[in-house]
């Protein structure tokens, strides 16, 4: 029944189903899914890719029991501050990072399992008026926060057991940083998008602010999702929650822009717009490699191939209600789609 409700709609005469329903998770004790992610978890010498679901006041870890079936391993109960998001930490095992707050992030916590006394724990990483946070390679976390007039951009690293090490400060730009992306192909390069629609580039090793480049006025409040360097150009994948519809490019959800970091000049490479005839706009989404997925204001989820610049699949809202969030799982785990009722569906994308 669930599979029937969630059958993807295909576009442009595609004959192969590239998004297939796999399984569903439903936490009977929770009513609202805030976020979902995947994490590598090792127990009794067995390392598995598990699913993490977050509700406002708890975070649950699910392990695969049998094909298409999941069992809850543990639920961390959080305090009075609601969970806002799960922050994926790349290449880590047995570590889950979460952001909590009211409207804005007020604190970041680590959820972990201690093998010393075989117990599940949580620890406080950072508090403040946090505007943006991203998990980086090598068990690091970068965040931007504001105190009065000052902005702090800080990188914190963790040990394998989840202990926070000494943080490094990056030189902040004048405007507030709203999103980060590591630059693939250039070790130690980090980019961010700011409240006045600029791209900033840092050297993570030295903390230097290397460049500030304006995105343009046509696409306000752009958010960076991915960045990579190729042939001397910096390619940045941006989403445009507030972009206006135009005749030339439709209703753009994602855009790839090529910047020349030496001159700060840029050119648009490819647009990924909402499917033709689909009403509504981009609400939130995620990019993994050349694939982008987003929840639309209609309650549907759209998937794009960013290299082709076109929508390849659409999950309609269905009778059970609209989709609330969408994430890409690690290691080919496919698409994780959450509904407002707390259920999470897994889809294979091929």
């Amino acid at each position: 029944n669930e599979a029937e409700q969630s059958t993807p709609v295909l576009f442009d005469g595609l004959t192969e189903e590239n998004l297939q329903f796999v399984s569903k998770l439903k936490d009977s004790s929770s009513s609202c899914a805030v976020d979902v992610s995947t994490v590598w978890w090792e127990a009794a010498g067995c390392r598995e890719l598990c699913v993490v679901t977050a509700c406002e006041n708890s975070v649950s870890l699910w392990k695969p029991l049998a094909p298409d079936h999941w069992g809850k391993v543990y639920t961390w109960q959080l305090g009075e501050i609601p969970v806002i998001q799960i922050i994926p930490l790349l290449d880590t095992c047995n570590l889950i990072c979460i952001a909590l707050g009211n409207l804005e992030i007020g604190e970041i916590r680590l959820l972990l399992h201690s093998s010393e006394n075989d117990s599940f724990k949580q620890s406080l990483v950072k508090t403040g008026n946090i505007k943006a946070v991203l998990g980086l390679k090598d068990r690091r976390l970068v965040s931007s926060s504001r105190s009065m007039q000052e902005q702090e951009v800080e990188v914190v690293s963790f040990s394998e057991t989840g202990r926070s090490k000494h943080g490094q400060t990056l030189m902040p730009p004048e405007e507030t940083v709203l999103a980060f992306a590591e630059v693939e192909g250039v070790k130690d390069a980090l980019v961010g998008t700011t409240a006045v629609n600029s791209i900033v580039v840092w050297n993570l090793r030295t903390g230097q602010l290397l460049k500030k480049m304006h995105v343009g006025y046509s696409y306000p409040a752009s958010i960076c999702h991915r960045a990579y360097s190729d042939s001397g150009l910096l390619f940045v994948v941006l989403s445009h929650p507030h972009a206006k519809e135009s005749e030339s490019c439709g209703n753009p959800a994602f855009r790839v822009i090529a910047f020349n970091p030496k001159t700060a000049r840029s050119t648009g490479v490819i647009f990924s717009s909402l499917p033709p005839g689909h009403a509504g706009r981009y609400v939130e989404g995620e990019v993994k490699d050349a694939l982008a997925a987003a929840v639309l204001s209609s309650g549907a989820i759209a998937v794009w191939d960013l290299l082709l610049g076109r929508c390849t699949a659409l999950l309609p809202p269905g009778p059970a209600g609209g989709w609330a969030l969408v994430r890409w799982g690690a290691a080919g785990a496919g698409l994780l789609a959450g509904r407002g009722d707390g259920s999470v569906c897994l889809y294979r994308y091929a």
Partner: peptide, 23 residues
């Protein structure tokens, strides 16, 4: 290497900007 719209391109842009930017 150069592009008429983007200006002169450098494959070592990260190292060059790091040597030019204030510490």
């Amino acid at each position: 290497c150069s592009d008429s719209d983007l200006g002169p391109i450098s494959l070592n842009w990260f190292e060059e900007l790091s040597s030019e930017a204030p510490p």
